[in-house]
Amino acid sequence: MSETRYTEDHEWIRIEGDLGTIGITDYAQNQLGDVVFVELPEVGRTFAKGDEAAVVESVKAASEIFAPVAGEVVAVNQALVENPALANQDAQGEGWFLRLRIGNAAELGALMDEGAYKAFVEGLA
């Protein structure tokens, strides 16, 4: 069983047990345009909620990816480093950025569920 939550900065986190997989939403990749470079953190690094966890560079802009919750990096998506276009092609699947061991599950409660995020994005149009 997994559950996906969203931030107002357009990151998603898919929660499986005490692990959370993080990426950018389809809305975010569409806003960014073609992604040409991603910079991912080292495995073992720890983040507080809101820390800069990764950087994504598109043909248009450089953007930061923030940790939606505190945690320790347990994996990063090397395939995304080699083929940054995965962030455009499958933002919420193959284009994932990193996986955290969630440090404080209580922080998940502040994030949006899918319905709330959809409404949030619609409100931006």
């Binding site: 900065d9 990151e11 960014l32 994504v56 802009a61 450089a62 930061e64």
Partner: peptide
Amino acid sequence: MTSATDIP
């Protein structure tokens, strides 16, 4: 995610 720069 926040963008630092944009083309315009």
